[in-house]
Design a protein around this nucleic acid. Structure first.
Length: 613
DNA sequence: CTAGGGTTAG
């Protein structure tokens, strides 16, 4: 685009380096464009909000401080807004102070809306209450956007009483405020109340619908999210980009590929712009449905990619076991000038871990602190332990734990425990378990891992001890559940659950399937059967694990050549994993299984995880 | 065309 003085804001958005911005500024200055205060304000705001360069915020700050006479309320509000979305939201107060100090200026409803949002972003309760008090003092509490901001803020801070109190005192909350309340209730787990408020709303626009759909999505109640989306279409509400993002999140969670593809087609048909957010949600959906190629296709088609986009892609590749590609993508991310954040590093470390790239992973972990100044979260430590452990370097894993500057959490010990299971180290496994117990954890996963370690070595005493322990501690195992999509319909299976309408056929298919597998050399192993089931039920239960039911159902329902795609809520057990490998070979059928941790792509009798998970 | 809803990891 040629630089003209007609479209200053559009040109700012095209700049990708600080130098370009400075040049542009000089150009506009020479042309006299920026003498017009409103235009100057817009320019500064555009610079501040420009996502391309990491230096945009300091630069716009600099522009403002060199032109005090141009520091209009509009410009300062925009700066507060820009900072509220940045990684340093609390700096918004700097501009708030500037407004207060300027004789000719005083804060308005916009100022408080942005300021409150900044406090929410920063999770800063004191600052938030101060902003609340100031807004009250200056009489802006009647503004619905201020109300909405406050409700969101207190929900984010976890003070349910506070946002309820605010809402209760309002005589006539309008659409915006009601929507905020729906979203706040959903966020604090009160989804029923949220739905009630939503249903009672006299008028509901796209935003309200979306708040409710997103509420379900966030709580993992994806089915309800999709149901509500269906209702929204029936009511003829215009579907927008944001709606699609929530719907895609729900599809991703469920592994509902058909519905997800439908969204993709809808987006293209209706020529919705593939914005960063929508594109990211779309590629994430494809990744979580196991469609790596499609996901990467969307990724490369996107015109703009932010840290979410890159992190999603890296994480998607990691989940699908492609660690080498993760590191490659990370290099490209850096070339692109996008700064990685904590989440990017979680994804990267997981990628190194699944691919056994220990040295690379260690470098990544080091550079995270030294180059990017990011303080590791507990998750990062857990990933490193997992990385060493998975590679069989249990000594490195344990010394890494010992050297952790923070108290090791259940995740770190859990990673070690899983490594002990993979590498049959009972002694260290027991030690890890003991450590976990001291953390008073109620997570059943650890008990299952330990039990499996005992079972591998046929130590049935150990197995029953763990079972007793679980009983004593009142830890219950979450029931295993597998979901399979057939013709766009999701079918749910639980262990030994016989309630499916086609159960008789499933049972027949299952028996045939197992006998075919046996003649192909499959031998069932009862040693990893979940130990909370009585002995005599073991053999039986093994045959009726939810993923096996789902596979049988897939075999009888899906045309030849269609992949069987299964989403499981827990980790897959050894026996089901083995069964899947055999099915993929004997029936010449690919199986894509997403478990709690990662993907397993079964083909020709081999799994993409190489039996390491 | 300054304001409410939406994206990543566990």
């Amino acid at each position: 685009m040629a630089i003209t003085t007609q479209n200053p804001i559009a040109i700012v958005e095209l700049c990708s380096t600080l130098r370009q911005l400075r040049q542009l500024h000089g150009h506009f200055l020479a042309a006299g464009v920026l003498l017009d205060p409103p235009l100057f304000a817009k320019f500064v705001a555009a610079v501040a909000l420009s996502p391309k360069t990491p230096h945009h915020l300091p630069y716009s700050h600099e522009l403002l401080s060199h032109s005090p006479h141009h520091a209009s309320l509009f410009a300062l509000n925009s700066m507060i807004r820009a900072h509220s979305k940045s990684s340093t939201p609390i700096k918004s107060f700097h501009f708030y102070r500037q407004i207060l100090l300027a004789d000719a200026l005083s804060p308005d409803n916009y100022t408080f809306t942005f300021l409150i949002r900044a406090c929410t972003q920063a999770s800063a309760p004191e600052a938030g209450r101060a902003a609340h008090a100031a807004a009250l003092r200056r009489g802006f509490l009647s503004d619905s956007h201020v109300q909405s901001g406050l409700i969101h803020m207190y929900a984010e801070l976890g003070s349910s009483d506070a946002f309820r109190g605010i809402y209760a005192e309002l005589q006539n909350p309008d659409l915006v405020t009601q929507t905020a309340m729906v979203s706040a209730c959903a966020e604090s787990g009160e989804i029923k109340l949220a739905r009630q408020l939503f249903d009672e709303m006299p008028h509901r626009d796209v935003v309200a619908w979306n708040a409710m759909i997103a509420g379900y999505s966030h709580l993992g109640r994806s089915r309800e999210a999709l149901d509500l989306f269906g209702l929204m279409q029936v009511e003829g509400v215009r579907i927008g980009e944001a709606t699609m993002v929530s719907v895609l999140t729900a599809c991703a969670h469920l592994g509902a590929l058909e519905q997800g593809k439908w969204v993709h087609v809808y987006v293209e048909k209706n020529k919705l712009r593939l914005t960063v957010t929508l594109g990211t949600a779309l590629l994430d959906m494809y990744f979580k449905c196991g469609c790596v190629a499609r996901a990467m296709d969307v990724f490369w088609r996107m015109k703009e990619r932010n840290v979410y986009t890159w992190s999603s892609a890296i994480s998607g590749l990691a989940m699908n076991g492609n660690g080498g590609k993760c590191l490659e993508l990370f290099e490209q991310m850096k070339d692109d000038g996008v700064l990685p954040n904590e989440v990017t590093f979680v994804a990267l470390l997981r990628g190194c871990s699944v691919a056994g790239l220990v040295e690379e992973g260690r470098d990544v972990f080091e550079s995270m602190k030294s180059r990017y100044g990011i303080e590791p979260w507990l998750e990062h430590y857990g990933c490193v332990v997992d990385m060493y452990g998975r590679a069989g370097r249990l000594k490195d894993a344990i010394s890494f734990i010992d050297a952790m500057p923070v108290e090791p959490h259940a995740g770190a010990w859990g990673a070690l425990l899983n490594a002990c299971r993979l590498h049959n180290n009972i002694e260290l496994g027991e030690y890890a378990m003991k450590k976990m117990m001291q953390l008073e954890l109620r997570n059943h996963g650890a008990y299952v891992s330990l039990s499996n370690i005992y079972a591998e070595s046929r130590n049935w005493h150990g197995v029953s001890d763990v079972r007793e322990l679980m009983k004593a501690k009142g830890v219950r195992k979450e029931p295993g559940c597998s979901v399979i999509e057939v013709d766009g319909q999701l079918h749910e299976f639980f262990v030994g659950n016989k309630s499916h309408p086609k159960y008789i056929n499933i049972e027949t298919t299952m028996k045939e399937m197992m006998s075919k597998l046996r003649s192909a050399g499959y031998v069932s192993r009862t040693n990893q059967v979940l130990f909370d089931i009585e002995e005599e039920e073991k053999e039986d239960a093994l045959c009726w694990h939810s993923e096996k039911l789902a596979i049988a159902f897939g075999l009888m329902s899906l045309r030849d050549g269609v992949n069987i795609r299964i989403v499981k809520n827990l980790r897959v057990c050894w026996d089901c994993h083995e069964t899947s490998k055999f099915v993929s070979k004997v029936f010449d059928r690919e199986i894509v299984m997403r478990d709690r941790n990662r993907f397993h792509h079964f083909k020709d009798g081999v799994c993409s995880c190489m039996d390491y998970w």
